[in-house]
C-alpha cells in the first residue's frame, strides 16, 4: 500500500495519442444530435443576456466605460462554455461510465484508463470551445463585440475548457450517484458563475471575495474574454492566461488517479 501511495506522488500519466480515439467516440455520438443540443445550450445565456442586459441594463448605464450589455456579453460567452463542459463531464461522463460501462469496455482494448479519462477531458474542452464560440457568434451579430482581438477567444475557450473538464471529472471520479452532482453545481459552478466578474466587476467586492475569484479559472477567462472583446490588450492578459494554464497542468493528474482508484480494483 505504501508503495502505491508513493507512486501517486510522482504520478506519470500513461497517455498516448490514443486518447483521441475516446474523443472521437464522443464526437461521433455528438454528430448524431448536434442540432438539438446546440440549440438548447445557447438559449440559456441568451436569456441571461436579455433579462439582465435589457432589464438591469436600464438602471446600470455604464460599467467600466462600456454599456452593461457589452460588459456582460463576453463573460456570458465563457460562462456558457463552462456550463456546457460541466454538464458534459458530470452527467454525460457519469452516464457513460456507470450506466453504460463503456469505460470498462474501452480499457479491455489497448487504451489505458488514463487515456479514457484524457479523451473525456479533451471532449469536455471541445464542448467549451464549441458552445462558447457559437454564443460568441451570436453576441457578435448583436453588435456587442468591438475588436478583432476577439478571434483569440475560441482557443482560450478550449484551454479554460480543459480546466472545467478536469474539475468535473474529479467530481465524477468520486461521485457515488447522479444526485451528488446537485452539490457540484450548487457549491462550485453556480457560485463561480455569480462571483467571477461576469455580471459586475470583482474589484468592488470585499477583499476575500476577490481572493476567491482569483482562485477560479472562470474569473481569469472572463477577464481575458472581456478585454479581447473591447480590444484592451495588455500584459495582464498573459498573467491571466498563465494562471489558467497552470490550473490545467496542475489539475491534470487528479482525475486520472481518482478514476483509476474508482474503476480498478
Amino acid at each position: 500500500m505504501v508503495n502505491l501511495i508513493n507512486k501517486y506522488y510522482i504520478y506519470k500519466p500513461q497517455v498516448t495519442t490514443r486518447a483521441l480515439k475516446v474523443f472521437n467516440r464522443n464526437f461521433l455520438v455528438f454528430l448524431k444530435h448536434w442540432k438539438s443540443s446546440l440549440m438548447f445550450n445557447f438559449i440559456e445565456p441568451l436569456l441571461y443576456l436579455a433579462a439582465l442586459g435589457f432589464g438591469l441594463g436600464v438602471y446600470v448605464e455604464e460599467v467600466e466605460g462600456i454599456s452593461y450589455l457589452q460588459y456582460i456579453a463576453p463573460g456570458l460567452v465563457v460562462s456558457s462554455a463552462m456550463w456546457s463542459t460541466s454538464f458534459e463531464c458530470t452527467y454525460g461522463s457519469f452516464t457513460r461510465m456507470q450506466l453504460h460501462r463503456i469505460f470498462h469496455a474501452m480499457i479491455t482494448t489497448p487504451l489505458s484508463i488514463d487515456e479514457v479519462v484524457t479523451g473525456e477531458i479533451i471532449y469536455g474542452a471541445f464542448k467549451s470551445f464549441l458552445y462558447g464560440t457559437v454564443f460568441l457568434a451570436v453576441v457578435t451579430i448583436l453588435g456587442l463585440i468591438s475588436s478583432p482581438w476577439v478571434l483569440l477567444t475560441p482557443p482560450l475557450l478550449f484551454i479554460v475548457g480543459i480546466v472545467f473538464a478536469e474539475t468535473a471529472m474529479i467530481w465524477t471520479s468520486i461521485s457515488p450517484n447522479f444526485d451528488s452532482y446537485a452539490y457540484y453545481f450548487t457549491l462550485i459552478i453556480t457560485p463561480m458563475f455569480l462571483f467571477s466578474g461576469v455580471f459586475f466587476p470583482v474589484k468592488n467586492m470585499p477583499f476575500f471575495v476577490q481572493v476567491i475569484a482569483w482562485m477560479t479559472p472562470l474569473f481569469h477567462a472572463v477577464e481575458i474574454s472581456r478585454n479581447l472583446a473591447i480590444g484592451q490588450v495588455s500584459v495582464m492578459l498573459f498573467l491571466h492566461f498563465f494562471i489558467i494554464l497552470l490550473f490545467a497542468v496542475l489539475l491534470f493528474s487528479f482525475p486520472l488517479i481518482l478514476m483509476r482508484r474508482r474503476l480498478i480494483k
Binding site: R18, K21, R25, L28, V29, R101, I102, A105, T109
Partner: peptide, 29 residues
C-alpha cells in the same frame, strides 16, 4: 490487450451507437 479478445461479464456495449458502429468504433481503439 492488443492481442486479446475480452468478453466481460456485463454487456458493456455502446448504447448510443448502432450495432455496426459499435464494432467499427471498437476497432478504432
Amino acid at each position: 490487450k492488443n492481442l486479446l479478445g475480452v468478453v466481460s461479464q456485463d454487456n458493456n456495449l455502446d448504447p448510443e451507437l448502432s450495432v455496426e458502429d459499435n464494432l467499427i468504433l471498437f476497432a478504432s481503439y
